[in-house]
Structures are given as structure tokens and as C-alpha cells.
Write a protein that binds this DNA or RNA. Sequence first.
DNA 1: CTGAAAGCGCTTACAG
DNA 2: CTGAAAGCGCTTACAG
Lengths: 328, 328
Amino acid sequence: MSSVKEVAKQARVSVATVSRVINNDPVVSDKTRQKVLAVIKEMNYKPNLLAKNLRKQSSYTIIMAIPSITNPFYAEISKGAQEAVYGSGYQIVIGPTDSNKDQLKTYIQLLNTNLADGIIFVSTSVTEETLREMADKYPIVLCNAYYDGLALPCISIDNEKAGYDAARELLRRGLTNIAYTTGTRDSSPVRGRLLGDRTALKEAGIDFRPELIVRARNDYGEVLQAINGITDAGFAVDGILAHSDIQAAYVLRGIKEGKLRLRTPPHLISFDGTMLTEITNPTISSIVQPMYDLGYLSVQRLLRKLKNEDAEEEMMKIVPHQFVIRET
Amino acid sequence: MSSVKEVAKQARVSVATVSRVINNDPVVSDKTRQKVLAVIKEMNYKPNLLAKNLRKQSSYTIIMAIPSITNPFYAEISKGAQEAVYGSGYQIVIGPTDSNKDQLKTYIQLLNTNLADGIIFVSTSVTEETLREMADKYPIVLCNAYYDGLALPCISIDNEKAGYDAARELLRRGLTNIAYTTGTRDSSPVRGRLLGDRTALKEAGIDFRPELIVRARNDYGEVLQAINGITDAGFAVDGILAHSDIQAAYVLRGIKEGKLRLRTPPHLISFDGTMLTEITNPTISSIVQPMYDLGYLSVQRLLRKLKNEDAEEEMMKIVPHQFVIRET
DNA sequence: CTGAAAGCGCTTACAG
DNA sequence: CTGAAAGCGCTTACAG
């Protein structure tokens, strides 16, 4: 492996000059530059970026902590994120947090040990307490979920509007017992969507019934149990708002397999709008989030932050969602 | 930020001793170790791994080049890979290659510039020529696809057996015009599956018709076109072997939307067996690959290779697939 | 068992 | 416009 030293020797210049050429420093003369460039090409020299990183005190690496990579919603966000670093000179490490309790610590450790320059937290993959401790030590961007007490940049859809849109559509169809399966965590998206839900109910003159709000993970059994629980409590569920496409797909599966105790096939609207909503039968109506953009913009924001180019920016960046009515 | 130097000063030892303590060198005395450990804790010292990496000439980073992260098949492989690095001291960069022609170059550049120690190529994300050039420069592991001329470690299912299993089942059902939508690339999995297909046909006494083999990407339009092309050529397709679950899901969608010109609903078997096959309606019969294991074992193999612990190992590691009959 | 010193391969302030 | 030299923060062969 050749080094700047050897290139310098071959080109009969100093290592400083070689370094300047590599970094396109306009100060070097054209003649010198050409000479050095020729030697670099001839020797097939590649700079050792491990050395550069140490010297610059930067890993040029960012982390995206994300619940799960196998949920298509997060896969799309990851895709946007990965494409956003392309050409920036940064690498991105996608860090799933749901499979193991301590994985998040590993990613934070990367920041502690100078192996990462900043981090994006997608959804509620971190506690508010941890976040507070990290907030003034490291560059952070939030994606999807925010925390009221923390002034951190956040990219998200308008969840209140989304919840309102979805509930309003079901109400427009004349439904009165609309169940809502939320995730397991109390997060800003869930709170926002519920707020929208309540506004829509209020406008329609229908009482909000907390019994219709149930928690469930993206797990078939939990979704069945959650909804059957509402039925068993005496509510004739006629509409369902699903926290994710996966949950909605499980609702359809439950209906098909006869494991969901319902009087009539419910109207169903899911949040996210991944490819899943188009391959189920019936296809699922949903609030479509701009997943790719969420990932892409989060990375861009973090990169600007790392370069201190974000001074003037608003903390909250709302990206538009779409509402696509399909067969449910 | 504190450094070994400051820790050394506080603990009244040399930086060498601090380094030895950090790295659990058994040579240091217990008293010294305790003293240093106490100071490290007190100062909340975290080693700067950028410096360690330069000194050790290793990034402790591996790359997994993978066609697409949004295809659930590859998402599961990624998941296995990510969990396999957990606790190893290595990081993994998941690098999608399908969205941009030059992304693969970026990942190879990471190897050139000492920012990655080794690479896993999933499926045919690289040309044989590129691979040949890289083969003796960097540690490489292949996942899914292999190249006959190159003695590189590979983790894969037995595609010939899988193709045989799938074709045999369709033949057992009395079908005689079995279409096979392959991917767009000529890869070892496709060749293997076709070989198995032909063996099964031969055993059943049915002629192999190359017209039934059609290429298609994981794209709705291409899948429709490919299969309609066979019908238009005069074949009464009654069974379909789909190269991926996504293609199979598109076949179902095509049938539902009436865009597939077929006499009867075809029997359908897909390769991969991701969650998609269970949320479609009907659910899809498939050759289920151990996706998580493919990713997990590929990483383990590469890590052993990096530590030179794989001297005795076979190049080819076959992992078992399952054949799950669902509703198609 | 411990320390002094060299060195990993870059970048950059400073001097000329 | 260019070079000599210091330094980023570690690890490790060597000496004692």
C-alpha cells in the first residue's frame, strides 16, 4: 500500500502538497497538481481515510436508529436515508433497535467513541431521558416522533391531520364504533392521531369512547386479541383505524380465518401506506406517509447540522401525507 | 474529551499501562488495573476508536452489498447480518446496489480507503469480472449466488433441489404448462432452479419448453407482460414458478385485476417465502429460504475470515430450505 | 510488571 | 505557491 509519503517522493514534492492536491486545495499550481495527479494515478494511490478521520476528528459516519428493518415502513425510510448520504462523503449505519434491548446502547457507544458523528432516531426508539442526556453532546435528528420538552430537529407528517382525515372518512361512511389499534408505546404520532380522531368525532357529534382505543404490537395474536377485546366489551366495531399496515393486514387475515369476532366486515384504514396495502386482497385504504422523504430529509438535515448550516431552520419540518382510498 | 494521556496522568501510570488496561491485557497487576479502572470511571473516559483503528489498520467495519433493502427477502437477510455483528466489535454497513449504478463503486471504495475490512455480496450485485479483481485483495463472502470460476466462500440454499421440489409439486398436481418467471440476471440460483425444474420435468416425462421460461424484474408491468407473452405464444399456462414472492404477489394482483390472460387460475409457487406469502389472499405456496440464517451465517463466515479462523472450512455452505404449501 | 518512545498516515498552521 | 514539522490518540516492540 502506498502512502502520501511515497507519492510525494515519486512526485518530488512534499507530503503537504500531495495532501493539498488530494483535497483539491486551489492554492497549488497547475503544474504541480498535474504532476502529483499523474503519480497518484500511476501508483494507484488511495488515501487511507482512517488516518484522515483521526486527524479530522470525524468518522464521517452517521447512525440511523430504527425499530425494525423488516417492517416495510422502516425499510422505505432506510432507503431514503441511504440514498441521501450517497455522494456526501458520509456513510450511514442502519441500526435496528427492536430485536435486542442493548442494541441502542451499541449505537450510542459509537458516538461516545468517535465512530459516529451524529444520529437519527426513527420513531420512539429511545427514551426521553436518554435523549435529554444526549441532546447537548451530539448532533441529533428525530424522524416521526418528537418530544415536547426537547428542542430537537424533527421530520414528520402532521399526525393530527392524518388522524382527522382517517376518522373523518370512516365517519362519512356512517360508522359509529371506530376502533383504533395503536402501537404499544405512547408516542407523539399516536397522541397526534388520537387528537385528530377526537376532533373528527366531535364534529360528527359522536362520543369519544376510550374503550375503542387498544394497544397492540405488530403481532397477529395481539391484534386479534385487542379487537376481540373491544367486541367482548360490548361494542359493535364497524370501523378500524390500524396503527400500521402490518396490523391492518392482520385484521384482514383474522377476518378471513374467522378469528375476529365481528358482526360485519369492518371498514379499515391503516397508517403508513406501504406496498403491503396494495398486495392484500382486499387492498387497504390508508394514510400514505412519504417514507422515502422522511428518511431522505432526516439525513439531509443531520448533514447540514454537522456542517453547521442549519442555524436558521425551523425545528419541525412537516412533510405532506396522502390519503389513498382503496378497497377497505 | 479525555484521552489516555490524561487518564495516565491522573492514575500516575504511563499511557502504555492505560492502554493495556483498556484492552484487558492480563499482564498488568491487579492493583494497577483497579487504580486505572477507577480513574477511567471517574473521568468517564471513552477511548477514541478512530485512533485505535488507525493504529490497528482496521476499520472494524464490514459491508453487505445487497440489491434492495425494501424487498422483504433482502430485509430479512440484512436483519440476520445486523444481528450477527452484534457484540463482535464490528459494525456493518448495509449497502443497497439497485437504486443507483455507482453505489457498488462507493462500497468498493470503502475497502480501498481502509474504511471497510471485508465485504459480503448478496445475490448478483456484482459482475464476475469485478469480483475476480477483488478476490485476492479483500476478504469476500458470497450470499445466495456464487461464481464457478472463483473459489470464494458462499452461503446458499440448494437451488437445484429447491427448483426440483417446486416443479415436482406442480407436476404432481397434474399441470403440464409450467411457466417460470426468472429474474433479469443470469445467476447461479436461477441456473440451479432451472436445472431442478428440468430434472423434475424429465422424471415426469414432460418436454422442457424454453418458451415457458421468461425474464421479469420485480415489477408489476414486467410480470404481466412476461406471462401474457407465454399465453400469446400459444401455451395454456396452468402453473407458475415465480422467482420471488413479489412477482408471485403481482401474479395474484394481475389475476384479480383481470390483466393476466389465462384460461384458469394458475397454481403458483414462489421462491423466498417472506411474510408477503402469508398476507396475500390467497396465501402463496413457496420455497422458504432461511433468510435470517443466510445473513447471519454470511457475517459469521466473514468475521472468521478476517480473523483467519476459517482455514479448514468448505467454500460452499448449503443451508436447508423448506417447502410450504399454502393456498395456491 | 511497567514505561519511554516510535509510529499508524494523514492535515494544517506557520514560515518563507 | 511550497515545505518542514507538529500532532490527531491510540498500540506495541523493546528494554529494564
